[in-house]
Write a protein that binds this DNA or RNA. Structure first.
Lengths: 168, 168
DNA sequence: TTTTGTAATGTTATATTATCACACTTACGT
DNA sequence: ACGTAAGTGTGATAATATAACATTACAAAA
């Protein structure tokens, strides 16, 4: 049974959410003495268009216009900058990028990814991080980077799905 | 400081390890009534060449010979088969594939990946899985697939690294 | 044993994701 | 204004993966 695609449902004032993220990004870049140039900011805005992960070549299309053909390096440079400065995350299992809601600091990445509506929810709990750290330590392993990506159905999509295929 | 690449260190009888994996794969396929054809078996053998993850196009080169030019679909079909039957895993953060040491059953994927020697260690503990499941449940999220990929340095590489760059 | 249907493979082309190399421009401190 | 480093433009290409359709091999039925 194929998943029904849908728009991410996340009841909140997204215009606010997005502009907060942009403002915070500006603060962070100012504090760090790095430049949030027009291209970088534009890419960040596009990524914050909603709470789904965005593909590099979609950004490319969106940035390109009638008079302006943006090339891949432009996008990837902007993405690299945003990644380095902790403003976005890369979702490995999707080859896509999503805004970071707690930008600035290094923090481990744990995501719930809805395969129906594509929403990406970033987790902030420490239990998982600790459990992983313990396991790693027991193997004498020194962690530099954790990637935790959990696929499935978000609450609203799970509900919709159950409705469409009710269990007898 | 760049990581020193190295061969994966994993003191064991790898010939045995590898041939056990192959034999187990044959048992599993027989039980399931699916065919471990020559190409599929060859790919599985190559993946079990050591405990590092292998790239699809490296398999392609290794399978190709003077008289035989193997094309991408051949490899990807074999990889799909092996993935579907739980004989290998895909490491998303590397776009690469690794043998599964507990093949057959569905199980969550948790890997320690050494960025120096490329060894991939599959974890089997349940703490992490439970911690993730709890977090997901608290968001009303229904999990279908977990990907946990932890990058860093394995024990031997961490030791070697510390030796090369001693802390005063 | 031949037939026949399905699974598997071969083959060509192309899609998708990402990087390299080098030229040019802009911002910024001096 | 000048020099420098950071940022961007541009063309080419690398690396990863899939689509579409033809052909072959296998195993069970007739």
């Amino acid at each position: 049974m194929p998943l029904m695609p849908a728009k991410p449902e996340y009841p909140h004032d997204h215009a606010q959410c997005s502009s907060d993220a942009l403002a915070e990004a500006q603060r962070i870049c100012a504090r760090r003495g790095v430049r949030l140039t027009e291209t970088r900011q534009k890419v960040l805005e596009l990524i914050w268009g909603d709470h789904a992960a965005v593909k590099a070549y979609d950004l490319l299309e969106q940035l390109s216009g009638p008079g302006r053909a943006v090339r891949p390096p432009t996008i990837y440079r902007a993405l690299d900058f945003l990644l380095e400065n902790g403003l976005i995350h890369r979702i490995e299992s999707l080859n896509a990028y999503v805004g970071c809601p707690q930008p600035g600091g290094q923090h481990s990445s744990q995501f719930l990814i809805c395969d129906a509506c594509s929403i990406v929810i970033e987790l902030t709990g420490t239990d998982v991080v600790h459990a992983v750290a313990d396991e790693a330590a027991s193997h004498g392993f020194e962690i530099t980077r954790q990637t935790i990506e959990v696929h499935g159905l978000c609450g609203p999509c799970a509900a919709r799905h159950a409705e469409e295929a009710p269990v007898p």
